[in-house]
Computed example of a mutant assay.
Amino acid sequence: MSHYVGLDVSLKETSVCVIDGSGHAVWRGTCRSEPDAMAATIRKRAPEAERVVLESGILSTWHWHGLKELGIPIVCVDARQAKAALSGRPNKSDELDAEGLAQLARTGWYAEVRVKSLDSHKIRSALVARAKLVGLKQTLSNTIRALLKTFGLFTKRSNGKGFAETVRSHISDEPLLGKGIEALLSSWERISTEIKILNNLLTGVARRDPLCRQILMTAPGVGAMTALAFKTVIDDPGRFQRGEEVSAYLGLAPKRHQSGEVDRMGRISKCGDALLRSYLFEAATVAMSRIRRENSPAAWAKMLCKRVGAAKARVALARKLAVILFSMWRTNKPFRWSTPHPVPTA
Rank of each mutant, 00 (worst) to 15 (best):
T166A: 15
I144V: 10
G223R: 03
V222M: 05
E194Q: 15
G162V: 05
R207Y: 09
H170C: 05
N159I: 08
G180Q: 11
K196V: 08
G160E: 02
S192D: 07
E174M: 15
F154A: 10
V134M: 09
T166P: 08
I197E: 15
N142M: 09
S187Q: 11
A129C: 11
L147I: 11
L198K: 05
D173S: 11
S120T: 08
G152K: 00
M217E: 05
K137N: 10
I123R: 09
F151E: 15
T150N: 13
E174T: 12
E182D: 11
I171Q: 01
R213Y: 05
L140V: 01
R145V: 00
E194F: 09
T139M: 15
I215P: 04
L201Y: 12
E174P: 07
L140T: 08
I144Y: 06
R157F: 01
L148E: 02
I144N: 05
F163D: 03
I171R: 02
P210H: 03
I181P: 00
M217I: 08
N199Q: 09
I197V: 15
G221E: 06
T155A: 07
S141K: 11
C212S: 09
V128W: 10
I215Y: 00
H121D: 13
I144D: 06
Q138S: 15
S186A: 14
K149F: 13
I171S: 00
E189N: 07
K196C: 10
N200Y: 09
H170D: 00
R190M: 14
K122N: 15
W188T: 04
T166E: 13
I215H: 01
I181R: 04
S120D: 07
K137P: 06
K196M: 10
R130E: 02
Q214N: 15
L148Y: 00
G162E: 08
L202D: 08
R207L: 13
E194G: 05
L216P: 02
H121P: 05
L184I: 11
F154I: 11
T143Q: 14
A206H: 03
G204N: 08
H121Y: 13
K149Y: 13
P175N: 06
G223N: 03
S192F: 02
G204H: 04
L185I: 07
L148T: 00
V167E: 01
G135S: 09
L201R: 15
H121G: 06
I191Q: 06
E165C: 06
T150A: 12
L184T: 04
P220G: 03
A206Q: 01
L216R: 07
M225P: 00
D119C: 07
K149P: 05
A224N: 00
A126G: 10
N199K: 05
K122W: 12
L148D: 07
R145C: 05
A126M: 14
V205A: 07
T203W: 06
L136E: 14
K137F: 09
S125T: 14
D209V: 04
T166N: 12
V222P: 08
L148Q: 02
M225C: 02
L176A: 14
P220K: 00
